[in-house]
Simulated assay, not measured.
Amino acid sequence: MLMIRLARVGARKQPHYRIVVIEKDRARNGRSVEVVGTYNPRTNPATVTLKRDRIDYWVGNGAQLSERVGKLLAQAPAAEPAITA
């Protein structure tokens, strides 16, 4: 089963995340199928960049959203690919 979830890529005490499509049982930073966005909580306000068309494609093919990614998508307007949350 595929999940759309966060994968941490930042240095120690400087978190930065990729929003990835990955197998559910893989490790947090394991090999992903596709990167569909980024999330940077260190900016003020936090920066979220999403590839909406690819997220919709994967959800249509059965991928599930993690709780955090679901919240990020709910905050994002539907028309804009890049937003600040």
Score class of each variant (00 low, 15 high):
1 M>W: 15
2 L>K: 15
2 L>M: 14
2 L>H: 13
3 M>A: 11
4 I>H: 08
4 I>N: 01
5 R>K: 14
5 R>Q: 14
5 R>L: 14
6 L>P: 02
6 L>M: 08
8 R>C: 13
10 G>F: 05
10 G>I: 12
11 A>L: 13
12 R>N: 13
13 K>Y: 09
14 Q>K: 14
14 Q>R: 12
14 Q>C: 05
14 Q>H: 11
14 Q>Y: 03
15 P>N: 04
16 H>Y: 15
16 H>R: 14
18 R>I: 05
19 I>Y: 07
20 V>C: 10
21 V>W: 04
21 V>I: 14
22 I>P: 00
22 I>K: 03
23 E>W: 03
23 E>S: 12
25 D>N: 11
26 R>D: 15
27 A>R: 15
27 A>I: 15
28 R>L: 15
28 R>A: 13
29 N>I: 09
29 N>K: 06
30 G>F: 06
30 G>T: 10
31 R>T: 15
31 R>S: 14
33 V>F: 11
33 V>A: 11
34 E>R: 02
34 E>W: 01
34 E>H: 05
34 E>Q: 09
34 E>C: 03
35 V>Y: 06
35 V>E: 07
35 V>C: 12
36 V>K: 01
37 G>W: 03
38 T>W: 07
39 Y>R: 01
39 Y>C: 01
40 N>E: 10
40 N>H: 09
40 N>P: 00
41 P>Y: 02
41 P>D: 06
41 P>G: 11
42 R>L: 15
43 T>K: 02
43 T>F: 02
44 N>P: 12
44 N>K: 09
44 N>I: 15
44 N>A: 11
45 P>L: 01
45 P>V: 04
46 A>T: 04
47 T>D: 05
48 V>M: 06
49 T>E: 02
51 K>M: 10
53 D>P: 06
53 D>Q: 08
54 R>N: 00
56 D>L: 14
56 D>F: 11
56 D>I: 14
56 D>H: 09
57 Y>M: 07
57 Y>N: 13
57 Y>G: 14
58 W>L: 07
58 W>G: 04
59 V>P: 01
59 V>W: 01
60 G>Q: 07
60 G>P: 09
62 G>F: 04
62 G>H: 09
64 Q>C: 14
64 Q>E: 13
64 Q>G: 14
64 Q>L: 08
64 Q>K: 12
65 L>V: 04
65 L>T: 09
65 L>F: 09
66 S>V: 08
66 S>E: 07
66 S>Y: 12
67 E>N: 08
68 R>V: 09
68 R>G: 10
69 V>Q: 06
70 G>L: 01
70 G>K: 05
72 L>R: 05
73 L>Q: 11
74 A>Y: 02
74 A>W: 00
75 Q>M: 11
75 Q>D: 09
75 Q>R: 13
75 Q>W: 04
75 Q>P: 08
76 A>R: 04
76 A>E: 06
77 P>C: 03
77 P>L: 00
77 P>R: 00
78 A>S: 05
78 A>D: 08
79 A>Q: 10
79 A>V: 07
80 E>F: 02
80 E>I: 05
80 E>G: 03
80 E>T: 00
81 P>E: 01
82 A>F: 02
82 A>H: 05
82 A>C: 03
82 A>Q: 00
84 T>W: 09
85 A>K: 13
